[in-house]
Amino acid sequence: METAFTPLQSLSGGVLIGLAAVLLMAVMGRVMGATGILAGVMSPSDRSDFAWRAAAVLGMVSGPAAVWAMTGALPAVQVPVSTPMLLVGGFVVGVGVTYGSGCTSGHGVCGMARLSPRSIAATLTFMVTTFATVFVVRHVVGG
């Protein structure tokens, strides 16, 4: 499935993601990682932590509605993979981000911006295995 190259939209989206990370640091003193926020909602260490994390998740989920209010269209979600692949992929992502202590937002954005050696190593590692996996799925198995 072809997708259009959208450098300006993607860059402005990226700047907003970075801005959200900066705001969370300035206001709450925390790194903005989807994994950490999600895991915190699932097993809250204390109730005040649960509340702000749940509110952040709700805010994230409201993103598409806000885009719809501004532009009149929901953001595109095209899923070019089968349901079994979604389920297997989702489970594998869940295990990986738990052991790896983070994902694209936590390691890839916040950790890279802090020049954390752990996050740089994690980001390089998952970028390589994602490239390799897509290559195998699309050109070796599916080719």
Partner: peptide, 30 residues
Amino acid sequence: RPLILGSATFGVGWGIAGFCPGGAIPALGT
């Protein structure tokens, strides 16, 4: 080891499904 093996595993899942956690949570709103 958990950092590197976990991150490697995350990449495999991301490559299979196409969603990462930070992409999927907002996508729920669609």
